[in-house]
Design a protein around this nucleic acid. Sequence first.
DNA 1: CAAATAAAAGATAGAAAACTCTTTTATTAA
DNA 2: TTAATAAAAGAGTTTTCTATCTTTTATTTG
Lengths: 152, 152
Amino acid sequence: MLTFVPEMGVFSKTCEYAIRAVLFIAHKTAAGGRVGIKEIASGIDSPEAFLAKILQDLSRKGIVQSAKGPNGGFYLDDKALKRPLTDIVEAIDGDGLFTGCAMGLKQCSEVNPCPLHNQFKTIRSLIHDLLQTTEIGKFNDELASGIRSLKR
Amino acid sequence: MLTFVPEMGVFSKTCEYAIRAVLFIAHKTAAGGRVGIKEIASGIDSPEAFLAKILQDLSRKGIVQSAKGPNGGFYLDDKALKRPLTDIVEAIDGDGLFTGCAMGLKQCSEVNPCPLHNQFKTIRSLIHDLLQTTEIGKFNDELASGIRSLKR
DNA sequence: CAAATAAAAGATAGAAAACTCTTTTATTAA
DNA sequence: TTAATAAAAGAGTTTTCTATCTTTTATTTG
């Protein structure tokens, strides 16, 4: 019997944590300063050690900035604040969501289309446009005021 | 280092195979008859044993019909041919794609929205509408003529 | 400089998804 | 009624993804 039912979100779990963490860092450090892994993990309700690995990765890729030692932590420089959400998604999940075939065909294209090719082309580009036109810093105010949530 | 880059399609791999297999069975048996697992697996380029498990599951759930023994195989009755693609997706992946939060929040809703709630509500319902309004038998002609592909 | 702090790095563990193999059951037809 | 066929069922294995733990490196402050 096939008993598993995947979570099947649009993004991987790693990517979900990544987006939440980056938005959390963005609004927490908008006025300067840094925020530590403990506070981030509890602020977005994620496993601390796992999130540490994810942020390590994002830091290496320049999506977030970090500093070691006392008063250290994660933060975003001005450039990072203005990056689109696509940068996070592509850093973690790659571009499969934007370019892949819904039915898993390797060579699905205009000349060799799967049955759902045209419809999903539209949907994929909607998702891409949405993420591409949304800057990381966009939600800072709504997060500060509490009308948007990053946990639960 | 985080070295993995998930495939991250919209559906699980199991579900991709399921959709392709069901559409294959639909067009192969539109004029009556049955089609065996070997022919289906090679027709959609999927691992045979794994697909057998998936079809077993779909058969139990009434999405496809099957018969054992010589001249046995899989087929679709009239009712099954008219079912929407959502039935396949929900049978395999559940409804997480249609109802879940893009950022993985358990209680994301109108009153407790994640930053992407409104935008993804639109996208999720677009995907649902598309699958809900598309009957399994819809592609039979295009598949028969070869202008749509289920492999590669 | 020593102690404390905090992220980076390395190594490993656990869970879920993807996939395989073997045995059993049902059906057909010689 | 036996042999052949083909799916169903059961019991794995492998791979990938998610998560944890320990050690190291860098930075700050007393």
